[in-house]
């Protein structure tokens, strides 16, 4: 029998995967994917929370989170295109003009 604790642990593992991805990967597209994984973990937590507490605002939140994640990804990809045009690469290491 799988209870809500297992779901929470699963989603926290998903969050950890996303976090590690953002920290160690250097490719902007992969970072975008990792951020998406983190947001999905959060939405999942809300749905689980809705099951535990028995009110619907958690499931409602998922709809918001999905819309926000889409908007964020759209902007992220737009930034990726702009920086690709500049440097021909989306590796974050290659961008050093702001470092002193």
């Amino acid at each position: 029998m799988i209870g809500s604790t297992e779901y929470i642990i699963l989603l926290l593992i998903l969050l950890a995967i996303g976090t590690i991805g953002v920290i160690i990967r250097r490719n902007f597209i992969i970072i975008l994917m990792s951020l998406e994984i983190m947001l999905n973990a959060a939405s999942g937590l809300f749905v689980v929370g809705s099951g535990i507490t028995g009110n619907m605002s958690g499931q409602l939140f998922f709809l918001f989170a999905a819309a926000v994640a889409a908007a964020e990804t759209a902007v992220g990809l737009a930034i990726a295109i702009v920086i690709y045009r500049k440097k021909g690469s989306v590796e974050t290491d290659k961008f050093e003009s702001l470092r002193r």
């Binding site: 953002v22 902007f28 951020l35 947001l39 959060a42 937590l45 689980v48 958690g58 939140f61 930034i79």
Partner: peptide, 24 residues
């Protein structure tokens, strides 16, 4: 913009997980 995006999205992902845990 790229740097701000990475940092900002990272921080708001934590914010939303925090809200989710408060909710749970």
């Amino acid at each position: 913009a790229m740097k701000y995006f990475i940092f900002g999205a990272f921080a708001s992902a934590f914010l939303v997980v925090g809200i989710a845990l408060f909710y749970i």
